[in-house]
Amino acid sequence: MRATYEVPREVNGWVRTEHPRRVTAANIFDYMDGAGELYLAYAFVGLDVWKFTRAEAPEILVEIYEMGNSADAFGVLSFDLGGEEVGVGQKSVYGAGLLRFWQGRHFARILAEAETPEAKAALLDIGKSVASDLPGGGTLPELVVRLPEAGLLPESVHYFHRKMCLDYFYYLADDNILNLNKETNAVIADYRTASGKAKLLAVEYDPGDSCAEASRSFHAVYLKQWPPGDGAIRSNEIEGAQWVSSLRNANLLLIVFEGESQKDCEELLQAAVSSLTQGGKGL
């Protein structure tokens, strides 16, 4: 179903193309060869593209992505949460002439060819206008909402499903040792700890044996050992004086990487399992 929203015809002298270019999963690589995989790694439905032009001024590109659900619309935004919050949509980030925001099942990307004060003002106006017309009511992914709050570095949060995304956020192995797929929900985030920083990865699997199998696979390939039992924490010191700790709780696999001490890792794991299973307050 096509979304119904309005994109203004003219903003501060910039005039948009009459009709959008419609991009779907079938032709996304014609539009963005080498980049389409990102959107296909989430529940991509379609994309509308407009261009705004004004004489002697940078062109402004407007891309409105329709996703199958609001969690994945946020997921695409969380590919990079770095930037200035400018109050557009349910969450926005702006930097160097690029505005990205999330609202409901939509993710928007508005890019000025070059950042000038006028172009920035225009693209923010375009963004606010579009956001005011997009359906709202999007909910953050449960895994993100339930992240432990203490020590969380909010800009480091990434929500995703597939291995190719994890490879970009935190390359772990060439094989898919966590058995990630389009059905798995995962979040990775950095935390301040007593000794420094650490990285928390949480993966939620379907009920059944998937989580236990992933834990076995991870421990066999990455740590060369048998996994701990359900509910037990296992910590290992690896190369570079880094600690890795893991815990499986029912269908939730939690791993802390790059901890500077065993204590840091295990405290973060305990906070995470408590928060993720009982309801925390992450983002």
Binding site: L172, D174, I177, V221, Y222, E239, G240
Partner: peptide, 12 residues
């Protein structure tokens, strides 16, 4: 080719 490469191999 070279199955089972992990981040740890890069660190080492």
């Amino acid at each position: 080719h070279a199955p089972g490469i992990t981040r740890r191999d890069f660190i080492r």
